[in-house]
Simulated assay, not measured.
Amino acid sequence: MEFLQRLDAIVVFTFLITMFFKTSIYFYCSLIGIVDLFKLKNHQQIVLPIGVINIFLSMVMASNFSEQTEEGIIPH
Rank of each mutant, 00 (worst) to 15 (best):
M1W: 14
M1C: 15
E2D: 03
E2G: 00
L4F: 11
L4V: 13
L4C: 05
R6I: 13
R6H: 09
R6K: 11
R6T: 04
D8Q: 14
A9I: 13
I10T: 12
I10A: 04
I10S: 06
V12M: 11
F13I: 14
F13C: 06
T14P: 02
T14R: 07
F15L: 15
L16K: 15
I17W: 15
T18A: 13
T18G: 13
T18P: 02
T18L: 12
T18Y: 13
M19E: 13
M19R: 15
M19V: 09
M19P: 04
K22V: 14
K22N: 15
T23A: 09
S24W: 12
I25R: 10
I25S: 10
Y26E: 06
Y26N: 09
Y26M: 05
F27W: 11
Y28A: 06
Y28N: 03
C29R: 09
C29A: 05
S30C: 01
L31F: 10
L31A: 10
L31I: 12
I32A: 07
I34M: 10
I34P: 06
I34G: 06
V35K: 12
V35G: 03
V35H: 13
V35S: 03
L37M: 08
L37T: 08
L37C: 05
L37Y: 15
F38I: 03
F38K: 08
K39T: 11
L40Y: 10
K41D: 06
K41G: 02
K41C: 04
H43W: 10
I46L: 00
V47W: 00
P49I: 06
I50R: 07
I50L: 04
V52H: 09
V52C: 02
I53P: 01
I53L: 02
I53S: 00
I53Q: 00
I53K: 00
I53V: 02
N54C: 07
N54K: 04
I55V: 01
S58M: 06
S58P: 08
S58Y: 14
S58D: 07
M59Q: 01
M59R: 01
M61S: 05
A62E: 00
A62M: 00
S63M: 12
N64S: 04
N64G: 03
F65N: 02
S66P: 05
S66H: 02
T69Q: 13
E70V: 09
G72N: 10
G72P: 08
G72I: 15
I73V: 07
I74W: 13
P75S: 05
P75L: 14
P75E: 01
H76K: 03
